[in-house]
Nucleic acid binder design. Structure first.
Length: 577
RNA sequence: GCCGGCGUAACUCAGUGGUAGAGUAGCUGUUUUGUAAACAGCAAGUCAGAGGUUCGAAUCCUCUCGUCGGCUCCA
């Protein structure tokens, strides 16, 4: 039994139940999706909430008992239009179909316009389902169309699989970066500062810095030079690049008090970097020039699109632009891909690539000569093949100026996030009229490679929080060692231990509260510090520490100097444990 | 921006038209503790904000802000 058939069949069942409970609701479309299914309805005046789910599920269980099969019925266009009279959505779908291809699938007394893909024994198969959420969705995905009510649900062949799925969702909730970020004191938001504007507290700011420093350290070995560019730029810059036409509604405007000049907070670094390149004549011998920038970027996202650290209005990127000759593109892209691989490995993230190309149906979305697009899209594909990178196609996912090789990472719960990107761009150099003098003395146009590895360090921090569930590798953990003196009498020794740790560059804190050891351990463990060092009479006398890991494992008595050495190694080698 | 839900102490939440509550965290004492929560006391709130209905509003209505689940968008 195919899972897709199971899910699609269940969407019919849900539509049948809704039809009985809300006879005026107009069913539209109900496909199977990755983790289940949905069905969109126009409920008219009626409102549906999650509190209605129990009632709907009961109805579904009741109806399915009478469903022996899904019977295929071929029908004429005229008859179909007659049957669905008054349901403008189904009418539209029917009119889009060629006569002779219109089929219904009938189960019990419910039949729906459908091209098929169902289970054999609905009354046996459709048992282990659950409705998940209710949401708005535009008819046919177009925001100019009416908004319908979408109900999401899922179904599995067995109760156990359904339970596992629900348990996985619960685990995801526990790891939610918004929850852990608050509990672990990594970042916060303030209504006064504004929505989508995260404030990084000392621990979160530290982690953000550690990620940046790591990326920077890898990059600097590869000949990248850091630059720094202002937070605002004249509108003309973005008009030249094409960003103004495409994105001016999501750029923050800034005005001068003393002139009519119009500025924008920068939403990306590319146009500014072209101006560093253009600041002096370049020789073919100077190339490639690799510029990196970790500056803050600002985008005026629509309010409903903001979410935790996933989608914000202020963020940075580990953004690089490589200006090179056409004959250097292959090597530069290979090197960028290799660097990405190294960095992803350090964080223990698995991933796949997406080849993001143009939307063939909407050529107006892209700038530049389509022939160059043909060339760069094909080139990107060849590069991925040559590097033995598994990828899937992402038609319509390209940037407006270039195709993209996008890295989609999977976290420990199998959820996907777009992080890295590499893009081969011929058009921004053209728009900014960038040149270099080639060996034959003639002016030529450089190619611009856009490249980010973690993408946005802020969003990457979110991925790390959820991937590790807050149990970061020691090199990233804000408090690497918590020293727990058993009583006030052991404070002096605890201080000595902490001093030694700090001298070795290990981030250590002392819990000097007037609490029992159990309480100190509990709090240290909940705060997810890497190691607890317990010190009492026995340790003070022998110059040792009793080490406990955050998972509760007791490592027993250790020599302080030796343990520091081991910790140093764990941190320096960025070991994931 | 659109559809729908939610907003009570620093945090997690109870309170549905009649005197604003609990646990945790905080503070003050007592306790001096050996591997996941000692005990007692104290303090803490414009019930998101504004307007309205009512003798009376955390509770009902309207708007605004924030937030959550989606849709659309994501350089």
């Amino acid at each position: 039994m195919e899972l897709e058939h199971l899910r699609h069949s269940c969407s019919h069942l849900m539509a049948a139940a809704i039809g009985q409970l809300w006879p005026k609701a107009k069913p539209t479309l109900g496909p199977a999706i990755e983790n289940g299914f949905y069905y969109d309805f126009d409920f008219g005046e009626a409102k549906i909430a999650e509190s209605d789910f129990e009632k709907i599920e009961e109805k579904m269980h009741e109806i399915v008992k009478g469903w022996r099969e899904f019977e295929k019925i071929e029908i004429t266009k005229e008859q179909a239009l007659k049957d669905f009279k008054g349901n403008e959505y189904k009418e539209e779908l029917i009119n889009d179909l060629a006569d002779g291809q219109i089929t219904y699938y009938k189960s019990g007394s419910f039949s729906d316009l459908c091209k098929g893909g169902h289970v054999e024994n609905p009354s046996e198969d459709l048992k282990f389902f659950k409705l998940l959420s209710v949401a708005g969705a535009y008819w046919r995905g177009n925001e100019k169309n009416k908004m319908l009510t979408r109900i999401y649900g899922t179904i599995f062949p067995t109760q156990k699989e359904l339970d596992d799925f629900i348990a996985m969702k619960e685990e995801a909730k526990k790891r939610d970066h918004r929850k852990l970020g608050k509990e672990m004191d990594l970042f916060t938001f303030s209504e006064l500062v504004g929505s989508g504007l995260p404030l990084y507290t000392p621990k979160g700011a530290l982690m953000r810095r550690l990620v940046n420093e790591y990326v920077e350290s890898v990059q600097s070995l590869q000949g990248y030079s850091q630059v720094w560019t202002p937070q605002i730029a004249k509108a003309d810059l973005f008009k030249t690049s094409g960003h103004y036409d495409k994105y001016k509604d999501s750029m923050f405007r800034v005005f001068s008090n003393y002139s009519d000049e119009e500025f924008y907070l920068k939403p990306m670094n590319c146009p500014q970097h072209t101006q560093i390149y253009a600041s002096k004549p370049r020789s073919y011998k100077d190339l490639p020039i690799r510029l990196t920038d970790f500056a803050m970027l600002y985008r005026d996202e629509k309010p409903g699109e903001l979410s935790g650290l996933a989608r914000v209005r202020a963020f940075s990127q580990d953004d690089c632009h490589i200006f090179c000759r056409e004959d250097q593109v292959d090597e530069e892209v290979d090197r960028a891909l290799a660097m990405t691989k190294e960095i992803m490995k350090t964080f223990g993230l698995s991933y796949k690539y997406r080849l993001s190309t143009r939307d063939q149906e909407h050529p107006e979305k892209y700038i530049g000569d389509p022939k160059i697009w043909d060339k760069t899209e094909k080139w990107a594909e060849e590069i991925m093949k040559r590097n033995n990178i598994e990828y899937f196609d992402g038609p319509g996912e390209a940037a407006f100026y270039a195709p993209k090789m996008d890295l989609i990472a999977k976290d420990s719960l199998g959820r996907e996030w777009q992080l890295s990107t590499v893009q081969i761009d011929y058009f921004l150099p053209e728009r900014f009229n960038l040149t270099y003098i080639d060996s034959d003395g003639k002016e030529k146009r450089p190619v611009m490679i856009h490249r980010a590895i973690v993408g946005s360090p802020e969003r990457f921090l979110m991925v790390l929080i959820e991937h590790f569930g807050g149990n970061f590798p020691t090199w990233l953990t804000p408090v690497q060692a918590k020293v727990l003196p058993i009583t006030e009498n052991h404070l002096e020794y605890a201080n000595k231990v902490a001093e030694k740790l700090k001298k070795a560059g290990i981030r250590a804190e002392i819990d000097d509260r007037n609490e029992r050891l159990q309480a100190k351990i509990r709090d240290a463990q909940l705060s997810k510090v890497s190691y607890m060092f317990i010190v009492g009479d026995r340790e003070a006398e022998a110059g040792k520490i009793a080490v406990r890991k955050r998972n509760g494992e007791d490592l027993g008595s250790k020599d302080l100097e030796e343990f520091i050495k081991a910790l140093r190694k764990e941190i320096d080698e960025k070991i994931v444990n």
